[in-house]
Design a protein around this nucleic acid. Structure first.
Lengths: 352, 352
DNA sequence: TTTAGCACTCTGTGTTATTGAGTGCTAACA
DNA sequence: TGTTAGCACTCAATAACACAGAGTGCTAAA
């Protein structure tokens, strides 16, 4: 990135950003001088601020207003603050003890629920909106169990379990003249012959074998067996946005709410950040979704080697309390990924 | 309720309410006269409006403003408009053909998904927020299948299926020194001996029998078997609220968003309305949740005899397009409940 | 190099005047 | 007697204006 700031510029930038985060209004030279006890006078600070503005770290809503950090200013602040390197986290934190309990007794096969309960807490601690995302279909998902259960006279309920802990269910009406036995036989066959085979392989095999079945059988069976797994997303405390001054404009707020109702775009962001690993901070327009550009997204991927299992994130205003959020997310990244690494075999989605 | 309005008063009330729904601003006597071609002059309309105000159907934000309907005014409007009695619905509607397709191939065991896809469409058609609610634990839920699947060396995955189509899963770490065989044996036993027994009965039996098991076994098994089912709620298009003029006040909007993040209160409302049956319209303060009082909730319970399977609702501003929403919900109530009645045995949650 | 001082700029607020929509009342009318 | 035209009155919303205050940029002094 661009050059490094000297000591004095950095302390002014730091104070300006911190002040803006706290007050949510443009910060003037006097405020920086007083609030942060800088040993420079307001006049000096004004000079420094003018320089910082020229270099693009600050802006000016209008002549007689204080300074507001730009995305570049926030970026420099985040990259150079101590909290971004901080690796320790107080064991006494409620989060730490919560994780102790949850991670001890839970399994990565129940990842969505585990992450949900954790991020629910994190959302409450930080007062920002939390996101939990789990990807859809996984490449080498393998069949653990396929059970067809007759329900009543005319219905079949299929339960498909894969080694990632995913459970699919579907109910179908048995077509007129069909015996449930026949379909159940197919199910049993599959269950014993293909246990532990990748779903993709079973799919191909089935398509081949099913040529010999009647159309109606084939359709019913396919309906029971072929599921596509959609990504799962959960949100916590989206209502917080309605309280923040930067979202008092209804159209801005509306745009954000719409982003939250459409998981595809968020999924893409999380996918893109997997390779990066660790804590990603996307400030303002650094993220590609237009509606989300007045926001900052702090997120971490959960991986087992090079297999992506899911991601969690926090969304708040650009004026986010980075010094609180980033250490929390760092800590979460460490604990969760360690837990996954310890529990799952290397590079696997599953416990096998 | 209070008395019946004479012909003229009713036409003025009708025009005022309709006008207010359309314009979202107080409606004056001239507007009523012009927009609705009433044969009375503005002066006469003013007299009638004054009477309606005295009787509590209209209010007055301030002297020189037009009239705004009160909750009582909306209530009278809803109760006496033709659309509330209308029973037919165009077969050509996208909703009708959508239901034709969905209800034909789906089963009430997948109720949550069925209702979700329908209400997603309804939310888009009406531009209001849709809610799908499914109650939690059901009294006489019976066991269909309980399977314990070993995953890897040290984990067990339990899948419990009940006759309502509910599927529970949980993964546990096998305690040190345990053999998965032993626990699986318990599972098998349960599966063959207790299939079709109510969960409550199995629970009691197990608690009795498990006295003889060691503490650790008991705990592990209980962890696998005892789930409590929490109510499920899904929301569609909550972002719409951010666009409506009556919710431009951030604190009002925030209160509503918070209601949507807490399913307990909504669940209670839906539960209370089950007995009433059919289409319930709760206008403004008629619903008991404070944050939701600037809204109207139009909802229908889905029942099989006296068994409640779930509810769906639409939430919008009090100034809702009742003439569009109520017929839709009437139609939905009819189609869905008929579908349930045809598919499920009488007074049952399930297909058995 | 830093800082005090000062003129200047611009938003936000409070004041006032004005406009216009809408009412309530009264008197005329059918 | 019910309906309507006319008119004075009320009050929110808007615009115009002055003014205070916060904050800047520049200059000159320390």
């Amino acid at each position: 990135m661009s050059g490094t700031l000297d000591e004095r510029s950095w302390s002014v930038l730091h104070a300006t950003v911190t002040g803006y985060i706290r007050m949510a209004v443009p910060v003037g030279s006097r405020a920086v001088n007083r609030l942060f006890g800088l040993s420079y006078s307001p006049a000096t600070i004004r000079n420094v601020m003018a320089d910082l503005e020229e270099e693009g770290y600050l802006t000016h809503p209008h002549t007689s207003a204080g300074r507001v950090p730009t995305a570049k200013g926030f970026r420099y602040f985040v990259d150079n603050s101590a909290f971004s390197k901080q690796t320790d986290f107080p064991d006494s934190s409620p989060l730490a003890s919560f994780l102790d309990v949850v991670l001890d007794e839970a399994s990565p096969l129940d990842l969505l629920e585990v992450l949900s309960s954790i991020m629910n807490l994190v959302a409450r601690m930080t007062n920002y909106t939390a996101i939990v995302m789990e990807p859809g279909t996984r490449s080498e998902e393998r069949l653990l169990s396929f059970e067809i259960i007759p329900v009543g006279e005319k219905h079949l309920l299929a339960i498909l379990v894969t080694d990632t802990g995913a459970v699919y269910k579907r109910t179908v009406l048995l077509p007129e003249g069909f015996r449930s036995k026949e379909i159940m036989y197919l199910g049993d066959l599959l269950n014993t012959s293909s246990r532990n085979s990748p779903l993709s392989e079973i799919r191909e095999k089935l398509v081949g074998e099913m040529e010999f079945l009647g159309e109606a059988y084939r359709e019913t069976f396919q309906h029971l067996f072929f599921h596509h797994r959609t990504p799962e997303m959960k949100l916590f405390r989206t209502s917080r946005f309605a309280e923040m001054p930067e979202f008092s404009d209804a159209s801005v707020l509306h745009a954000i709410m719409e982003v939250f109702e459409e998981k595809a775009a968020l999924l893409e962001i999380f996918e893109d950040l997997v390779a990066q690993g660790g804590v990603s901070v996307q400030i303002g327009s650094e993220n590609p979704i237009p509606g989300l550009q007045p926001c900052t997204l702090v997120s971490i991927p959960l991986v087992n080697g090079d297999v992506w299992l899911g991601s969690v994130g926090l969304v708040g205003p650009v004026r986010m309390q980075y010094d609180q959020v980033i250490p929390i997310m760092h800590y979460l990244s460490g604990r969760l990924n360690l837990w996954i690494e310890k529990t799952l075999p290397p590079n696997s989605h599953s416990l096998i």
